[in-house]
C-alpha cells in the first residue's frame, strides 16, 4: 500500500520546487502564470481516500504559497480543485473497472480522456485562484482573461511533462 504512494510523495516535492524556483520566475507577459504543480493532484491514484486527497492538496498549495507570500491563496484553489476531482472523473467517464491501481494518466486512460480531465480541473483551479487573488468583481474581465491564457499554458506544459517524464506501460 505505502509503496504505491512513494512516486506521489517524490512528485509532490519535485513539482513544488519546479514551480517556485523556475516556473514562477518565467515571465510571459503580465497575464500568464502557468501553474504546473497541480499535476500532482491530477495524477493521484483513483482509489485514494477522500481525506488524503484534500489534505495533500492543501499541503501542496500551502507549500507553493509560502514561497510567493500569497498565504492561503494556492491552498484554497488546490483544495477546491481536489474537491471537484471525483465529480470531474464521473463526468469525463470513470474507468470501467478498478484493476489494481489504475492511474489517471495518458498510459492507462488515453490521450483524449486525459486532456478533457486536465482541462476541466486546471480551468477550475485557475478560475478560483485568480478570483480570490483579485477579489473584486470590477476586475472580472481581467480575471477571465488571465484564467484562459494561463490555463492554456498550464495544460500544454502538463501534457508535455507527462509525455516526457511518465513511463508508458503498454
Amino acid at each position: 500500500m505505502s509503496s504505491t504512494y512513494i512516486n506521489d510523495v517524490i512528485r509532490f516535492f519535485v513539482l513544488i520546487a519546479v514551480q517556485v524556483l523556475i516556473l514562477s520566475h518565467i515571465n510571459l507577459g503580465g497575464y500568464i502564470d502557468p501553474m504546473v504543480y497541480v499535476l500532482f493532484i491530477l495524477l493521484l491514484p483513483f482509489e485514494i481516500p477522500g481525506w488524503a486527497l484534500l489534505i495533500s492538496a492543501f499541503l501542496l498549495g500551502y507549500g507553493v504559497d509560502s514561497f510567493s507570500n500569497s498565504t492561503g491563496l494556492h491552498a484554497a484553489a488546490a483544495v477546491f480543485m481536489a474537491f471537484v476531482r471525483p465529480f470531474v472523473v464521473r463526468l469525463v467517464g470513470a474507468p470501467a473497472e478498478y484493476e489494481g491501481n489504475l492511474k489517471p494518466g495518458i498510459a492507462h486512460m488515453g490521450f483524449k480522456w486525459f486532456l478533457a480531465y486536465t482541462s476541466l480541473l486546471v480551468f477550475v483551479h485557475h478560475l478560483v485562484l485568480f478570483l480570490l487573488e483579485a477579489f473584486r468583481f470590477a476586475e472580472i474581465g481581467m480575471v477571465l482573461l488571465r484564467t484562459i491564457l494561463s490555463s492554456i499554458f498550464t495544460i500544454a506544459l502538463i501534457v508535455i511533462a507527462v509525455y516526457l517524464f511518465m513511463p508508458r506501460k503498454k
Binding site: 477522500g50 481525506w51 484534500l54 492543501f58 491552498a75
Partner: peptide, 18 residues
C-alpha cells in the same frame, strides 16, 4: 459526508489565512 466537511474546513482555513 466527511469528504465534504473536510473540504469545508480546509477551505475556511485557507480563507482565514488569506
Amino acid at each position: 459526508h466527511n469528504f465534504f466537511f473536510l473540504f469545508l474546513v480546509l477551505e475556511v482555513v485557507s480563507l482565514i489565512l488569506i
